[in-house]
Design a protein around this nucleic acid. Structure first.
Lengths: 338, 338
DNA sequence: ATGAAAGCGCTAACAT
DNA sequence: ATGTTAGCGCTTTCAT
């Protein structure tokens, strides 16, 4: 049986309060001599403070809860989750917090899920690109501090990138190369990034006076498989765009693979642009022109702001990070111009 | 203030125990009529069970702790962590557990770290490819169930791959292509996978009667940068191997980049083999010949075994998963033979 | 300066 | 069948 402060107190014939103060270095002062003896006995008994008992009183767990998009399968293999989580973990280490990743999201009973989020194990929450319904989110607001990543539509501090300006850079780049037939492989249209990039794409085309062709709009769901499936379709049609802007690198990669299999050369026959600047985008062949969004900074900023939120009870402002166009070898002038 | 079972009990003029039993559906039965009223009031008061208070009594948190290699920086961007964590999270969801990722490993005070591991928030631990000193691990064994990934030297159930046979497949493949000058870009030699693959490499060469040349042994630390640095050195020397087996894909990728920059063609001038079958290995140019280890299965098996361990108090056996050689385009016959 | 004791929210043994 | 009560291990107020 693990030793408790009671055991220490009994052994030294002093009170548990003195032991507690000695162990924690306050808030009440304890004579040095007593302190030393307490620490000695603690070590001797192999005493470990029980954080659960402490949390029950202090209402602090020093733990931050991370709620994935949907506590879904295979989330740890998506570059978005990886990048943001990396920033969260790095910052958690610095700030002295641990990170609880919630799973068990049951679409059937969202209420039960909300219950677990509020069960006292986390001091605050970070929702990663949430799909959870806004109603549930709003109800949470009264009960626990939380922030959100990559979704400015929520009534919560948001940490993400400026999708509109990022997409504009992509379209400007393609237009400057001479492209006029620009398609879009959309992401998951249930998520803010998916919607925002799609709308930004349409807006950017319009501002260049280019027509939006519904036939050149595909859904890639942010996945490699989604990009591949779309590619199977695109590369079988005659009237296809000369360039496709993909909502993320993973789907761009799938599209690239489909092009390869169909014998469509990239970038000579079709230009492809991704989004994220994930590791695969630079390692692929050809390396993919993409938009860098600072995923790690997004995670770090969300974490920092949340801890601040918890400590001050002052709701922080969100941050929209700038993006950067990274031109690689998957884009060139359209074929007709060569 | 959040409602408690006391509030519900008071409102209904019944005892807290009845409320507790009604809410939990046992272990004592409660008349249906009472149960319904309790649930109604609970909903009305927006009652949420406090898991912390429950944990204090039950000594169960339904939370599994994951201890990264070293609660180090940037771990979420390594394919190993990603793959294994993915398996852990997927399985956690199924088994009804959440996952607490520990950070705050301070090399200066390992004891403090051990304290946090035992502070009651986790029912069991998974050490990912641990570097933590064995002494500390052994002390933990008496206090909490834990398993380990990718380290069979520990006195704990281990979930990993059969490095020896995986490496043998690599060497056999290279030898069958005609290579006799085979180098090794080692991983982190403080970690079991790094050591095991290096030793397996030496053993496999020996079994083919090939000499081991210390000049062809490099350290890549499992990182892309490490591989790149080694490449800077290798490709500047005349007497270099005709093939290099890298301890993982990330370092192979760095080596590939260095080769590219130095104008050394892959695979014509040098064959490169990786390990892991990470996403980049298939997307890179050329796609890298590699060894697939089932990272997700490793994580899933570790999680399943640990939960079982916790529930039965029976220490489970570890599992060594088989590997598979995946031949791609980064290996070919050595130049002299062409 | 120190000890006694209340109590965080819950479970479960014990009592009726 | 249901209520009373003693804790789980800790922090902190109150009393001395």
């Amino acid at each position: 049986m693990a030793a408790t402060i009671k055991d220490i107190a009994r052994k030294l014939s002093i009170s548990t309060s003195t032991v507690s103060y000695a162990l924690n270095g306050g808030p009440r002062s304890v004579p040095e001599e007593v302190r030393v003896r307490v620490l000695a006995v603690a070590r001797e008994l192999n005493y470990r403070p029980n954080q659960i008992a402490r949390s029950l009183i202090t209402r602090r767990s020093n733990t931050i809860g991370v709620v994935p998009t949907e506590a879904s399968i295979n989330l740890a293999v998506t570059p978005y989750f990886q990048g943001v989580l990396n920033g969260i973990l790095n910052t958690a280490e610095i700030l002295g917090h641990d990170v609880l990743v919630y799973t068990r999201y049951d679409v059937e009973k969202p209420d039960a899920f909300v219950d677990t989020l509020l069960d006292g194990r986390a001091d605050g929450l970070i929702f990663l690109a949430p799909k959870i319904d806004s109603h549930a989110l709003n109800r949470l607001a009264a009960e626990i501090p939380f922030v959100v990543t990559s979704d400015e539509r929520r009534n919560a501090p948001n940490f993400g990138c400026d999708n509109a300006s990022g997409v504009r850079k992509v379209v400007d780049h393609l237009v400057s190369l001479g492209h006029t037939r620009i398609g879009h492989l959309a992401g998951n249209l249930e998520m803010a990034d998916g919607i925002d990039r799609c709308e930004a794409y349409k807006g950017a085309l319009a501002s260049h006076g280019l027509p939006i062709c519904e036939d050149w709009l595909f859904e890639g769901h942010f996945t490699s498989q989604g990009g591949y499936n779309a590619g199977q379709h695109v590369f079988a049609t005659k009237n296809r765009p000369s360039a496709i802007f993909c909502a993320n690198d993973d789907s761009a990669l799938g599209l690239l693979r489909a092009a390869w299999e169909k014998g469509v050369r990239v970038p000579d026959e079709i230009s492809i642009v991704g989004f994220d600047n994930s590791p695969v985008s630079s390692a692929s062949f050809p390396p993919i022109t993409t938009v860098r969004q600072p995923l790690e900074e997004i995670g770090a900023a969300a974490m920092t702001a949340l801890v601040n939120f918890i400590e001050t009870q002052q709701r922080p402002d969100g941050i929209s990070f700038e993006t950067e166009l990274i031109v690689r070898d998957s884009t060139t002038r359209p074929q007709e111009d060569i």
